[in-house]
Design a binder for these strands. Structure first.
Lengths: 139, 139
DNA sequence: GGGCATTGTCTAGTGTACATAGACAATGTA
DNA sequence: TACATTGTCTATGTACACTAGACAATGCCC
């Protein structure tokens, strides 16, 4: 069942001490929910002010995240109406995106190794993510 | 003509159009080389001015990357002498680092899925990275 | 239809980080 | 001792993240 049983939108978690900008953390987390299908087409997101209040940031910060996702085709934004999840055609994979991804992945994994994280555990986590985030298309 | 051409193979590549700061790209790539053992203890890195000239950036930008790695215990920096790779004790894994890693990994993989990248190919790349970066530490 | 609360958007203002520029200080060497 | 080489420091311009608060579109209730 829905863990957010109060009828309100899910409360995301952000890390104010992270070097990753808050609006990107929000967009990133929401994108994961969209990709995995936990947020489906037609779903309404909380208003920028509601989510901002939940997170303790300014509503413009949330608006920036929403606009980022709208630009990627995930959301429809209309003033006075809110944010709705769209049905989105999957874009063609381009080689630039893949190169960028690989560079970032290398950096991330190298940092994990440098920090002494356990490789087996990390492999398991990665496979779990892969299954979850691509589950909508392989079946 | 290529502004970085100096007749030698590039030590590393950076992407000026990326949103990732240049000094972090440099540190990230070098960290991968350090973790994998391609840069061993005792090795000398190019001077900040040499590397900066290769990359087409200011030497202070490279110096910032070097200092980042020195702070992590990878390098010894002495003015007049250059940068040398240190023997470094692997730190204990702490849960904060792991949580941060997982958040970033989720964001990265979700973005890859959103961009239409192929999951099998990505899994293979991940395993290759894992083997390379944890070489000698695990079966 | 009128009034009004709700929603996303816009323009400004402020603080911080990134990158550059160039001087400075420590080290090695001829 | 001279001098070139090296990392470090202070200053400066620019872009970005976040906040602040007004504005405009929408839907709802009477």
């Amino acid at each position: 069942m829905n863990p957010h049983a109060n009828g309100r939108a899910p409360v995301l978690r952000i890390d104010l001490s992270s070097s990753v900008p808050v609006y990107l953390q929000i967009a990133s987390r929401l994108r994961a929910l969209l990709v995995s299908g936990e947020l489906k087409a037609g779903h309404r997101l909380p208003s920028v002010r509601q989510l901002a209040a939940d997170l303790g940031v300014h509503h413009n910060t949330v608006a920036l995240a929403y606009r980022e996702l709208a630009k990627e085709g995930w959301l429809e934004l209309r003033r006075g109406r809110g944010a709705r999840v769209l049905r989105r055609a999957e874009p063609k994979a381009d080689s630039g995106a893949k190169a960028e991804f690989l560079r970032r992945l290398e950096g991330l994994v190298a940092k994990a190794a440098a920090d002494g994280l356990d490789p087996e555990s990390i492999s398991r986590q990665f496979e779990a993510l892969r299954r979850k985030l691509w589950k909508g298309k392989s079946s």
